[in-house]
Amino acid sequence: MAFKLILGAWLSIILIVGFSFPITTNPTNWYDLPFVPGLEDKARILFFHVPMAWVTTLAFIISLIYGIKYLTKKNLDYDIISSSSAGLGMMFCVLATVTGSLWAKFTWGSFWNWDPRETSIFVLLLIYGAYFALRSAIDGDEKKATLSAVYAIIAGITVPFFIFIMPRIVEGLHPNEAIVSQGKISMNKTMLVIFLSSLAAFTGLFFWILNLKVRAARLESKYYLKGE
């Protein structure tokens, strides 16, 4: 309970701080955020969009781990965790894609540019979509659990290939690549602290919602067991 209240307060503080700290060309005060040419106020997306993308990946990894656990132990409880995590991951994936796309329109000029990271999140979205399409097409809990776990593993194995492939096809547009090419990292200490605490807060939020989802799914399966 205490953990949840702290999380609520924490994310509220991040929202206030992330929006209200001024962006100046020459950061001197502790609360000043650095000015990035071409980004200005749009740099604030960092505090909200990147954690969403991180949670998407985290959810996929958790889904993968519990999928493997299901295959070795054949315990349906692992499948409940695995599929709940994938469901949440898909939601965060849509959020990250939409926020990123909206931001890209005003920074890079179009909603979609096939930048390496845009491509990989698009592929992740496709995988999540295919995963749930597969689940809805199979009858029987155990069959559903096994096949979707196998599919998640095969799909997860192919994702790292994009790290090698995409740079050969298009050049990166994402801000961190632009920042590195200028020869200095323009994220100052304040920005880094807000960013990292936002990452932690979003991770906490993800685990909380996952916990709720898993408990609801467990109750559902218990109800069906009782009914039969």
């Binding site: 592929v123 496709l126 979509g129 295919a130 399409a133 597969l134 097409a137 799909a155 192919t158």
Partner: peptide, 15 residues
Amino acid sequence: LYPVLSFPILLPLLL
């Protein structure tokens, strides 16, 4: 379902 499931997996190959 076949192309839906295959596409994300074959995309690295196709590119």
